[in-house]
Design a protein around this nucleic acid. Structure first.
Lengths: 159, 159
DNA sequence: TATTGTTATACTCTATAACTATA
DNA sequence: TATAGTTATAGAGTATAACAATA
């Protein structure tokens, strides 16, 4: 069991150190993920949206924006790119003419399948190299980080 | 103890799901952190560099770039901004005329102190709201995430 | 020749503001 | 009037490429 220790107990309450260390760690990992995203010419953000649609099924622009904690306009831009690449398609909402549902196309599903094999190999290997206890800790932490990411926000929760 | 379960056991090995879920969670949290960074007019990246210099002492451009997993040119831009704001200052390296050491100025130290109190209040509160076991899990995971972020890379390790 | 840093340029991601269409 | 989405513009954060100075 590894615990983060601040250099001296009097600097700050441990939880403040955790905020800083968590921020640094998350920033570092995300930059690594971003830097390596690209077997299909997809950016990291595009990949994340595809992953979410695959997992959650058809969603509206606003729904995806809420889940990813970005503004609808920003998500609209990403979806337009993905649509241009033929990876997602739009459908009219059955009862509300304003809303538009996005879902993966066959090509989008295929892109997800290919990625599963090739991408983020380094991260998969790094996680595989952890011992079982560490893997369990990481998986538990993922749910906690999601809660933190969704907490105290005007944003909606993730499904 | 919370475990992430994939919807059906046959979709993918659990560790692949962990890669995806970890990516989504980290992306979400980082967007929240980025969005809220700004009591002093500092951006998130600037804040992270100040935090690192505070923790590790004087570092060269290349050192910081390695630690943050960005290119030296990118870090150079960030450091130039911070220098322009009077938060960091440069010093000649004692033995190598090519290298430049950056350290916090008094104003930079003050900015860190003020931030400790005010910033990322929502995250500190969210972490405080976790139970002790969850907090311990999170702290353990921070060290794991740092290792993942540094793994398999041409980048150096973090101090 | 290899390394550290700088300058110039471009792309990704996201935000804010103003607008249109539907509820 | 409130909500979903679109269009236009801007800024932050990086990257790549080409260069200068030092080792």
């Amino acid at each position: 069991m590894h615990l983060i220790m601040t250099k001296s107990p009097h600097t700050a309450p441990p939880l403040e150190a955790t905020v800083t260390e968590l921020s640094l760690a998350v920033g570092l990992l995300l930059r690594r993920l971003r830097a390596e995203t690209n077997p299909d010419g997809l950016t990291w953000s595009q990949t994340m949206v595809l992953a979410r649609l695959e997992r959650s099924g058809p969603m509206t622009t606003a729904d995806i924006a809420r889940a990813e904690a970005v503004k609808p306009q920003s998500m609209g831009a990403t979806l337009t790119e993905l649509e241009g690449d033929g990876l997602v398609e739009r459908h009219r909402h059955p009862s509300d003419g304003r809303q538009i549902l996005f879902s993966l196309t066959a090509k989008g599903v295929e892109a997800r399948r290919r990625r599963g094999a090739a991408k983020q190999k380094w991260l998969l290997e790094a996680i595989t190299a952890l011992n079982p206890e560490e893997q369990a800790t990481l998986m538990s932490a993922v749910t906690l980080i999601k809660r933190l990411g969704a907490s105290g926000s005007r944003h909606g929760e993730e499904p």
